[in-house]
Simulated assay, not measured.
Amino acid sequence: MLHTLFIAFAIVLILEGIGPMLFPNKWRNYLQQMVEQPVNQLRSVGGVLVTIGVVSLFFLI
């Protein structure tokens, strides 16, 4: 079980690193746009992403 969690974490790190590695200027612009968003909008987007993740895990397990 712990081994599977480490594999999942490694995959997340790989996926998160692809954007800045391949498109650093676009990634910087994207982050600048994120900084300018209202906090409530960021919280809503985060909530939707967490909900999608939990529902996906529910159906995959």
Rank of each mutant, 00 (worst) to 15 (best):
M1A: 12
M1P: 03
L2K: 10
H3Y: 12
T4P: 00
T4K: 13
T4D: 11
T4I: 14
T4A: 15
T4R: 11
L5I: 15
L5P: 00
L5W: 07
L5G: 14
L5Y: 11
F6A: 14
F6Y: 13
F6N: 10
F6M: 14
F6W: 13
I7D: 08
I7E: 07
A8M: 11
F9P: 00
F9S: 11
F9C: 10
F9W: 08
F9E: 02
A10T: 08
A10C: 14
I11H: 05
I11L: 13
I11M: 03
I11F: 01
V12P: 01
L13F: 12
L13S: 03
L13E: 05
L13D: 00
L13G: 01
I14M: 05
I14S: 03
I14Q: 00
L15S: 02
L15Q: 01
L15E: 05
L15A: 10
L15H: 01
E16C: 07
E16I: 04
E16Y: 05
G17C: 00
G17I: 00
G19R: 03
P20S: 06
P20R: 07
P20V: 00
M21N: 05
M21D: 06
M21F: 15
L22Y: 09
L22M: 10
F23T: 04
P24T: 04
P24R: 06
N25C: 03
K26Q: 12
K26H: 07
K26I: 03
W27V: 00
W27H: 04
R28C: 09
N29R: 13
N29H: 13
Y30V: 07
Y30H: 12
Y30M: 13
Q32I: 12
Q32R: 13
Q33E: 11
Q33M: 11
M34N: 11
V35G: 01
V35A: 06
E36K: 12
E36W: 01
E36A: 15
E36I: 02
Q37C: 08
P38L: 02
P38E: 07
P38K: 08
V39Q: 09
V39N: 07
N40G: 07
N40Q: 10
N40A: 10
Q41C: 03
R43T: 09
S44K: 14
V45E: 09
G46L: 11
G47F: 04
G47Q: 06
V48E: 06
V48A: 11
V48N: 05
V48Y: 08
V48R: 08
L49W: 08
L49C: 12
L49E: 11
V50W: 06
T51C: 10
T51Q: 05
T51K: 05
I52H: 06
I52Q: 02
I52G: 06
G53K: 04
G53S: 05
G53Q: 00
G53I: 03
V54G: 00
V54T: 07
V54E: 01
V55P: 01
V55H: 02
V55D: 01
V55F: 07
V55N: 02
V55L: 15
V55M: 08
S56T: 15
S56E: 04
S56H: 09
S56I: 09
L57C: 10
L57F: 08
F58V: 08
F58D: 01
F58I: 06
F59M: 05
L60H: 08
L60V: 09
L60E: 05
L60Y: 11
